[in-house]
Amino acid sequence: MTSNRSKNGAGMIEFRGVNKWFGALNVLKDITLSVEPREVVVVCGPSGSGKSTLIRCINGLETIRDGDLVVDGQRLGDPATNMTRLRTEIGFVFQSFNLYPHKTALENVTLAPIHVRKIPRAEAEKAGRELLAKVGLADKVNAYPAQLSGGQQQRVAIARCLGMRPKIMLFDEPTSALDPEMISEVLDVMVAVAEEGMTMMVVTHEMGFARKVAQRVVFMDAGAIVESGTPEEFFSHPKTDRSRAFLSKILRH
């Protein structure tokens, strides 16, 4: 499908002049952003600035009104783009985990691989066990979500995404629903995923994580990308008043 490839399609995720409205509200304003393969980009900004909307557009949980959004060489909204197929290449980790409560940890991880990827059950289960072991939950394979702590649930959710062998992982504030003592266990897993070369966009205010693995921090405010730079640049020398105000707020906590 070469016709469907982006022309200068080096980026794994390419926003070009993307705009989105919720009614009269311009939630995404002329977003242009390119994420390279294996790159880790952290997105931060005040509440309501459009961070969730930005990453939800990438797997089509939200649709854009104008501009181009090209993911893995496929243009979203293009009739030639099979969105369901494309979604199998994109893992999405939610703030509230969204594990399937009627399935065990292992079943959560194997459900989509078996039914969507059509991987034989035995093979999917073997891979699922390995993934759960990798996120430190080898002993929780048969536990139901309600029997797991928040941090454990979020690690299962990450394993569930990895089970699809995605090319891209998106995280929407993966640790902000967690008790403080559970944050690091989830961040550690995310660091490990990043170090394996996954292309990642992570909405988070965890500066330690950003400094450790992110190549870039993107700061959003009121639907626009206001500033973007390396974690070092952004955290030590924020360029705009708005980012300085934002940083002083999150640093105080």
Partner: peptide, 15 residues
């Protein structure tokens, strides 16, 4: 969120 989790993992409406 349950619907979204399914959508995000590439499930069809019927799945």
């Amino acid at each position: 969120g349950q619907v979204e989790a399914g959508v995000a993992s590439g499930m069809t409406y019927v799945q």
